[in-house]
Design a protein around this nucleic acid. Structure first.
Lengths: 120, 120
DNA sequence: CAGAATCCAACGGGATACTG
DNA sequence: CAGTATCCCGTTGGATTCTG
């Protein structure tokens, strides 16, 4: 009985922690952007190509959000036609494992779908 | 050079997989619900208490979504005042590691916030 | 190239009241 | 108890245009 209560209590803390994370990583794009920048620094236009489906406006906002949370850094390169490079921060790399786990599950889920939704 | 291209290509697949996952687990509540039901089966009202902040309407919809994706099961208990129990499915338990990773990061992030946003 | 501005549609999500 | 229905708002997100 007490053991059950402990479980619930523990569960409560976990729920809170998950809510925290989902608050930071809301929207469908942030994890993709993070994963992208974990590979290498990229420019705005590169991200626009790599993160398929995202629009310019949304990419701008998401990048700002991520920068505010210190997950990525923005550097303006004073080159000829002006370039901006986005990089993952040390703190941002702490999300790498998370992106890996999410990607892994995505693969599995896709396999499950294309294998015809065989009844589990 | 080629190596870089490979990286990008690989990155592309990962981005897709992440998009897939985020499509299924969109909204701020689904992961919390999954994590909750990983502890033990729960009734609607229990979830309403455990998943702090969620409203009845949203909980209903999220539960339906999760059921459609075969991540949870719903059983109506023919008891006196009618009870409904939600359980995680085998497939749903494949998300347990993900909820753990997300929760871990949430803890870390909270620590970082309350420690005053120390740089680095 | 890197965005900001504007417009608009769709969805997420809260509050309340109602049903079986 | 376990939802559903309704209203209503803020956000998300796409398309397009404009700017430095």
């Amino acid at each position: 009985m007490k053991k059950e209560l402990d479980l619930i209590k523990d569960c409560g803390q976990k729920i809170l922690a998950i809510s925290d994370t989902m608050e930071i990583l809301n929207g469908k794009w942030k994890m993709s952007i993070i994963a992208c920048l974990c590979y290498k620094p990229m420019r705005y236009s590169e991200l626009l190509k790599e993160v398929k489906g995202i629009s310019g406006k949304v990419l701008s906002r998401e990048l700002k959000d991520l920068e505010i949370n210190e997950l990525i850094e923005r550097e303006v390169l004073t080159t000829a036609p002006v370039a901006v490079e986005y990089r993952i921060t040390d703190y941002g790399t702490s999300l790498k494992q998370l992106t890996d786990t999410i990607a892994d599950w995505g693969f599995i889920h896709r396999q499950r779908i294309i294998s015809g939704m065989k009844t589990g």
